[in-house]
Every structure is written in structure tokens, then in C-alpha cells.
Design a protein around this nucleic acid. Structure first.
Lengths: 209, 209
DNA sequence: GCTCAATTCTGAGCCTACTCATAATGTTTG
DNA sequence: CAAACATTATGAGTAGGCTCAGAATTGAGC
């Protein structure tokens, strides 16, 4: 897939097999015990590979988590995009509709969710899975941006502004989902809080001088 | 200070001494090598206490970092507050003036800075030093909020909105300073990026429906 | 089939944050 | 002053993420 040499069948198949087993093991263990409750050794054992091998396929425990969470994240974004589609209660609610599945998904196993978000933002953007996760985040941001441009049919807002505002919305969401203070909140309470912030940034008209 | 019993001198003094030595050791080592480049053992050695003792005074390595960074953070906020005071180029620039020292301070040793911010937001808010750090963050947010209310002499904006917007500004700053993508940027580039985002949220007027 | 190089796998071992049973030190009481 | 109690200090030990020197496997050339 990424090498010029015609790599022989057996090898490739064995590698794919291992990769799959590792992914499956991670997919099974992380949700149940949480990142902190699983050791890489346990994942290696369940995948039936040596610990060293595990680290041949994922350079980091976080990378492993990202692999797993990317799938859920992607699904949530898809849900959000179509939910936003069939929602005509104004930009604010459209954005919320888009965001809701993501917030719910991240908070479903909050430990994994917040670690995931943190690792995406904080970790090495070169690592392949992180790249993919960042691409997903970009997809989300684009979705928000297009909601902002579309509804603004009066032509008041520039496209650049929409993108910028989308970034801000993302930042708001990130903090509201990640910060410890909100851990005890219900999903709806968090969403309400996010709604308040988005409303504020969409309403403002200031003398920016 | 926090106990009813009249605790006798020697004990108290010894404790204060140790606390001070630990603080000094952390203050000396973290900036030079970065959080990741220092072991708790090294700090304990320099402070001339056993490793176990270290953990009697700081429950975590992160706590230790927070202790040290809180001081810098506090100073930066003070700088920012007075800079914002003597700046009359409109809200936007006032906010930037307020924020600039904080951004600079956090990015001075970026590893420590971003770890600090993350630990503040992510860690257990009950731990004493984190409490203090969060109080500092609140101080910053209040500063921003009051800039927003003050300049808005037309009475357009509610106080509640100002506080909400201040939270948003904080979120923007947090991400722009923490995310790996911005690591290579210069301080001014980061500030320019933050400026763009704040301008966007202050300019918008949308049909919120 | 056999040799040799390239690739992949392995797990003992390293590093470091953090704990906890025990020792040392200080304080109060008789 | 000694005994009894309370507080604080100690560092060997534990746990878990991650590495790396060597073993095992595979495919190519003959």
C-alpha cells in the first residue's frame, strides 16, 4: 500500500492480521476499563502479540486510544452533519444539532473522550492516527463554517469569518467537554452551556474601534 | 494556621523549611530542563529530602509544576492588567494587551506552559495548588469581562454576556497556546491569530433566529 | 534444497512516578 | 526523666509505559 516493492502475500497478510487483532483488543478493552484502567500489556495479551510487537504497530498507548476513538468520533460527526441538515431553527440550533452527537460521544466514556481530545490537540501531529483525528476535527469545523455561511444569506459575513468563528466554536466545545469542572454536568447541561457561549459570539456587535 | 492545636515551634519550622526547599528545587530545575526532563527524584535530591517526603508535600509531579508556574502566571496577569489599563485603542487591543503577557509567559518554556494549562483544566480541582491556579485564571477572565463591559458604554451588552465572552476569549487563548500546531509560531503570530478570533466574535451580528 | 539478507517478532529489562511499612523525631503526660 | 502517643521522614518496592539486542521468520538467488 505504501511501498514500491511487491511485498509477498504471507508477510502482508500476517501483518494485517496482527494489526486487526491489536485494534480489536483495544476496541474491546478501552471502553470497558477506560484508558487508565488498561495496561498495554493487557492489550498485547488479548491481541496475542508480544508487548514489543504492539509498539511496532502503535508508537504509543495514546496512539492506540486515538485509533479506537477516531471511529466513534467519525460516526458522531456524520450523525451531527445529517442532524444539522434536517434542522431549521436557525444557525444556533443547527450548530448545536451538529455538535450534540460529538459531545455525547466524547462524554460517553468521559475519561477516554477527554484524553482523546487532549492527545489530538497536544500530541505529535505527525503520527498517522492523530493526523486522521485532526482531519476529522477539520471536517467538523468545516461543517460548522458552512452552517455559518449558508444561513447568512444576507451576505453580511465573509467566508473567512465563518471559518474563524467555526474555530472558536470548536475551542468552546473542547474546553467545555474537557475541563474537570464540567465532569459532573449532564450532557444537556454541557450543551446548554455551550449554547450560551455560541449565542454570545453570534449576537455581539461591539465597537471594535 | 489551620489547626486548633497549638503546634509547637520546632515541628512547624522544620516543615516550612522543607516546603521551601522543595519549592526552590522545583523552581530551579523545571525551567532549565522542562517538566519532562526532570525526575521527581532529582527534585527531592536537590531539596535534600527523601522521595517519599517530597510526595508528602506535593501529591503529584504536576502539582509541583503548578506550584512553580502559578507564580509566573500571577505575575503575567498583573502585568497584563496594568498594560490593559494604559491602552486606549479599543476593546480588542485592550484585551490583547491584557492577554499578551500571559501568552508570552506560557510560551516562554512552552513544554511547562502547556502542561501547566492542561493540568489546570484537566486535573483534580480539589488539589490546593490547582485551586490557586484556577483562581488566577478566574482573575484573568474577570479582567477580560470588565474590559468588555467598560468599553461597552452604550449599554448594549449585558454583564452576563461580558462574562460569557470572557470565557470564550479564555478558551481561544487556551487552544492557541496549547495546540501542537502553533508550537512553531512566534509569539506575535500566535497573538495575531488570537486577535483574529476575538475580532470575529466581537464583530459578528447574526440572525440567531 | 540451501544460503543469505531483509523483515518482523519477542520479552527481559529500563525508567520513572508514586506508595507504604517502618523508623525517626518531636510532644505531652505521669 | 521515662513512657506513651502523635506526627513526619524514609527509601526499598511496585507498576506500567516503552526500548532494544537478539531470535525467528520469510523470500530471493542459486
Amino acid at each position: 500500500m505504501d511501498d514500491v516493492r511487491i511485498s509477498s502475500g504471507r508477510r502482508e497478510r500476517a501483518k494485517k492480521d496482527k494489526r486487526d487483532r491489536i485494534m480489536m483488543a483495544a476496541r474491546e478493552l478501552f471502553p470497558v476499563r477506560g484508558v487508565g484502567g488498561v495496561t498495554t500489556q493487557q492489550i498485547a495479551d488479548l491481541a496475542d502479540v508480544a508487548i514489543g510487537t504492539l509498539y511496532l504497530y502503535a508508537s504509543t498507548k495514546a496512539e492506540l486510544l486515538i485509533m479506537v476513538q477516531n471511529e466513534k468520533f467519525a460516526a458522531a460527526i456524520d450523525d451531527g452533519l445529517s442532524a444539522a441538515e434536517s434542522c431549521s431553527q436557525g444557525v444556533l440550533e443547527e450548530i448545536i444539532a451538529l455538535i450534540r452527537p460529538v459531545v455525547v460521544c466524547v462524554r460517553e466514556q468521559i475519561e477516554n473522550g477527554r484524553t482523546y481530545l487532549h492527545e489530538l490537540v497536544f500530541g505529535d501531529p505527525a503520527e498517522p492516527n492523530r493526523r486522521e483525528g485532526l482531519a476529522l476535527a477539520a471536517r467538523l469545523e468545516d461543517g460548522i463554517a458552512s452552517l455559518l455561511t449558508r444561513t447568512d444569506s444576507k451576505g453580511t459575513r465573509e467566508d473567512a469569518d465563518a471559518i474563524t468563528l467555526a474555530r472558536v466554536v470548536t475551542a468552546i466545545m473542547h474546553i467545555s467537554v474537557t475541563a474537570s469542572i464540567f465532569l459532573q454536568y449532564t450532557n444537556e447541561a454541557v450543551l446548554e452551556d455551550i449554547r450560551t457561549q455560541i449565542r454570545a459570539i453570534l449576537t455581539t456587535h461591539s465597537p471594535v474601534a
